[in-house]
Simulated scan of single mutants.
Amino acid sequence: MATRGGGRQGRELSDRGAETRALILDTALAAFAESGFRGTSVREIAARCGLTHPALLYHFPAKSDLLMAVLTRRDEADGGDAFEGLEAREMLAHLVATARHNATQRGVVELYATLSAEAASPGHPAHTYFQRRYASLVVHLTRAYRDLARAGALAPRVDPEAAPRQLVALMDGLQVQWLLDPEVDMAAAIEAHLRAQLA
């Protein structure tokens, strides 16, 4: 039977473990954003955290495990599937709000811009993750544009089947432009694009 002291000690160890994992994930996010997955070593991340290489491997046995944990943590912080239950116009407004929020998170934008390009290779550990991420986004946006078309709310010549991928391409392109020039207003550009599409 565990004593009170043992229980408290166990909680303290658990808390320290959670803090260490959080430190590793935050550090890995920054490192992957700066150098990409392939350009970052686990030893480098461990050193930045003030940990030994084996200590980091205790928490994340492989670099691919660490990468997927970073991506999962970011998704959880963003609230998971934020489009669920939103109407078409709400969904588009959410994208504008997301772009505005992303302008306060350079490291996260760098991470996704770098990794999404790297992950085009089928052998990349995040290949399936980004495939599913883009596919899900296009499915949600296609539903939104189809709903708008049925309601007569799209401007003439806006194709509800092509518009979703065009919007995703615009958002990705704006992120790269913003990374190169922080004066670029991603949210305003997306908002102007959507205004031109809506009747």
Rank of each mutant, 00 (worst) to 15 (best):
A119I: 10
A151R: 11
A62H: 06
A119G: 08
L167D: 00
K63E: 12
A82W: 00
A88F: 04
V96K: 01
N102R: 08
H140K: 07
A99K: 02
G79R: 03
A82K: 05
H94D: 06
D81K: 07
H140F: 10
G80H: 12
H127A: 08
V168L: 14
V176Y: 15
A103C: 15
A162M: 11
M91L: 15
L137A: 15
G173S: 13
L180E: 11
S121I: 08
L95D: 01
D65N: 04
A62E: 10
L66Y: 01
R146G: 11
L57M: 11
R73P: 02
F60L: 09
H140W: 12
R132V: 12
R48G: 11
S136K: 11
R165E: 14
D81H: 14
A169V: 10
E76F: 04
V176Q: 12
K63I: 06
L71C: 08
L66R: 00
A82M: 08
A69G: 03
P164G: 05
V70T: 01
A88Y: 02
S116R: 06
H94N: 10
R74V: 15
P54R: 05
A77D: 10
P61G: 05
P164R: 01
A47Q: 15
A99Q: 12
L56I: 06
D65W: 03
S121N: 11
D75C: 07
H94E: 06
A162S: 10
V138P: 09
R133H: 15
A93K: 00
P125K: 04
V70E: 02
G123F: 06
A120I: 05
Y58M: 13
A69K: 02
L111N: 02
D81E: 15
T114K: 12
A55F: 06
M68A: 06
A151T: 07
A144L: 05
R132A: 15
E90D: 12
L179R: 01
V138L: 15
L167S: 00
L95K: 00
F60T: 02
L154D: 03
L167E: 00
L95H: 01
H127N: 14
G173C: 07
R89N: 07
H59N: 08
Y129R: 05
A151F: 05
C49D: 12
P61H: 03
V96W: 01
A162T: 04
G152H: 07
A119K: 00
Q175K: 13
R146E: 15
L92N: 01
Q131G: 13
P122L: 03
F60S: 03
S121Y: 07
W178Q: 00
G50T: 11
Y112H: 14
V70M: 04
P160R: 05
A155F: 06
A149G: 05
P160T: 07
T128K: 02
A120G: 11
A97Q: 08
L71P: 02
A135G: 15
P160S: 07
A120F: 10
Q131S: 12
T142S: 12
K63Q: 13
P156K: 04
N102F: 14
A99F: 08
A46F: 01
G50M: 09
R150H: 09
G152W: 10
T52L: 09
L174M: 09
A120N: 05
M91E: 01
A163S: 01
A117Y: 03
R150T: 12
A149M: 09
S64P: 03
G152N: 14
R132E: 15
T98Q: 09
W178E: 00
